[in-house]
Computed example of a mutant assay.
Amino acid sequence: MRCSSRALRRLAGGALSLLLTAGVLPGLARPAAGDQTLPADDGARIKAETWIDSRTVDLTVTTPAIGDDEMIRVIVPPGWSPTASRTWPVVYAYQGGNDDYLSWVRGSQISDLAAQWGVLVVMPSGGKSGGFSDWWNYGKGGTPKWETFHTTEVLQLLERNYHAGTRRAALGVSSGGQGAIAYAARHRGMFTYAASFSGLLHISSAPIQWTLMLQGVTFNSDPFAVWGVPGFDDANWKAHDPYELADKLRGTELYISSGTTGLPGPLDDPSKTPPDSNLYGATGELIVGSTAKDFVARLQRLGIPATTHLYGDGWHNWNYWRRELATEWPLMMKALGAEKV
């Protein structure tokens, strides 16, 4: 059967129109006007979407909580469609400090794992030193409000526009691990499951407070802006501390892992990394490991079950977090009721 050139042009135009409507043309940055997507309650909106491939999209979000545009990487499950009549369970994966919203994609196998399951994976920006909190700002509040961004704006935008469901998991590395556990405790019932890989899980202990103060100075930021001045604003520190909030995690499935010694482990090669990276990896894991031990001991005293892997030697890096993700992922999928595809 032969087609005229006019028919071919009409067919090609129709196919392009379908792709544009579906929003799955790889590499296309498509403005998301207010009448095309639903905003969050506070006016946060999807400003643009860029489809990287048929299942991966970057969202540019205008967010009052942060006061600027922020990015979200979303991996949609096989079978997802913008016109679907169903929802999917969601993994909200949070970055570590001094990183960005693509850290999970660069550092781990999360894209390959997501391709095998009927689950959305949502990776929002967390800022270079966001603290996974609405900043204290000496009691004045105001921006940035990272907790509001993550637990209100991002959830509402994904649920209203991308078929994200209400069975949710929070997953984080390093400071993102602290955020995942704190969010699950501060918003009871929001997350069915929460996991921390090398997270800082006892932030209100005095040694950790002053370590974070030093870190703030190192990153050239105000060390008192996030949670306040140690000794004076301890109530606010405790209000965001997974250790202090542990009793609110009853009923949430938990996975906690960390190195504890600061010594190189089987996945480290000190000869192939710069000395400053070795020092950061060693001291960082020693510090977070001490808080993980505190947190796990508190869970045990409270009788709250958790899957834990305090693996001793090993530095603060993706070599270990990839390993932990491989172990943790099936547990998370089971908790979410996700289906393998």
Rank of each mutant, 00 (worst) to 15 (best):
C3G: 10
Q36T: 13
T37S: 13
D41T: 14
R45W: 13
K47F: 12
E49Y: 06
W51H: 14
I52H: 11
D53A: 01
R55W: 08
L59D: 14
A65N: 04
A65D: 09
A65H: 02
D68E: 15
W80H: 01
S81M: 02
S81V: 00
T83C: 04
S85P: 05
P89Q: 02
D99K: 10
M123C: 08
M123D: 07
G126C: 08
K128W: 08
F132P: 01
G139N: 00
G141W: 00
G142H: 04
K145M: 15
F149L: 15
L155W: 11
H163R: 13
T166D: 14
G176A: 08
A184W: 07
G189Q: 09
L201A: 10
Q209K: 15
L214F: 13
G216Y: 06
V217G: 09
W227L: 14
V229N: 04
G231N: 06
A235Y: 04
A239C: 06
A239T: 03
D241H: 06
P242K: 04
Y243A: 06
D247K: 04
R250P: 01
G251M: 01
T252Q: 02
S257V: 06
G265Y: 05
P266K: 02
P270A: 04
S271K: 10
P274E: 10
P275D: 08
N278F: 10
G281R: 07
E285G: 07
L286W: 14
A292Q: 08
R298V: 05
L299C: 02
R301W: 04
A306Y: 02
W315N: 03
N317Y: 08
E324Q: 04
E328R: 00
K334W: 10
A335V: 02
A335Q: 07
A335R: 02
E339L: 06
